[in-house]
């Protein structure tokens, strides 16, 4: 696109957004315009990144889980080095590290970012509103069993809870347990079972129905 005199960057940027009114939103808009005018990147590149983020969905995470369920060697690599292992499937979370936490009969994992709302968007898509809420972020560290129960996950005392607070440069995904009775299922059929919440850890049992 050439000839930037005839339109307003503020309007080309996600045109359905309302005009910013808060100081923070105006500062963000001004910063973005300066970066574009300074040639650091183009409005088109910015829109492409937004489109890529919005195009991601939990199906991506589901493909990784299904591969781990069907390929024990892949699962080993994934649990040791998530960042490099997902590249084998065409995913990339650089510059973040990526850590996959495996649910077992004895352990249930759940992910949170108490400081803001860090989330592996390239693998899970946009985060749900509750993941960003103060209620979830403050309570799931303080009383994880109560919060999980509200999601329908009632853990007995012989299952340990591990809460993972995503405070810095790591991103997380839970590896849910493979449901019984799926021994002969294809990788694609297995991937279709996996839900967003099971990858965050607010769901434990996957349904094969």
């Amino acid at each position: 696109m050439t000839g930037h005199d005839d339109h307003d960057h503020g309007r080309t940027f996600q045109p359905d957004h309302p005009e910013p009114t808060s100081d923070a939103a105006l500062v963000g808009l001004a910063l973005r315009e300066l970066l574009i005018e300074g040639g650091h990147y183009t409005a088109e590149e910015e829109l492409a990144v937004i489109a890529e983020m919005q195009g991601a969905s939990p199906e991506n995470g589901g493909k990784i889980v299904a591969r781990a369920w069907t390929d024990p060697e892949y699962k080993k690599r994934l649990l040791i080095n998530g960042k490099d292992s997902i590249k084998e499937l065409g995913f990339d979370l650089e510059p973040y590290e990526f850590t996959v936490m495996e649910n077992t009969d004895q352990v249930h994992n759940v992910i949170v970012c108490t400081l803001c709302s860090c989330y592996p968007r390239a693998l899970l898509g946009m985060s749900p509103a509750w993941y960003k809420s103060r209620n979830y972020r403050s309570r799931v560290v303080r009383e994880p069993r109560a919060v999980l129960s509200e999601f329908g996950v009632d853990l007995s005392d012989d299952v340990d809870v591990r809460v993972h607070d995503s405070t810095a440069e790591l991103r997380y995904m839970v590896l849910p347990q493979r449901p019984a009775g799926t021994d002969n299922w294809s990788e694609d059929d297995l991937a279709a079972l996996i839900t967003r919440d099971s990858l965050i850890g607010t769901q434990r049992d996957l349904s094969t129905k």
Binding site: V141, R145, D160, V163, A168
Partner: peptide
Amino acid sequence: RIYRVRIPQTDLWAPYEGTDGDKLEIEIF
């Protein structure tokens, strides 16, 4: 460098509704 540090939930919170096996894991520089 970042380390993942594992802390017993019963050390972090009192009272804590859970078990001694419950843990919090966090990234610390």
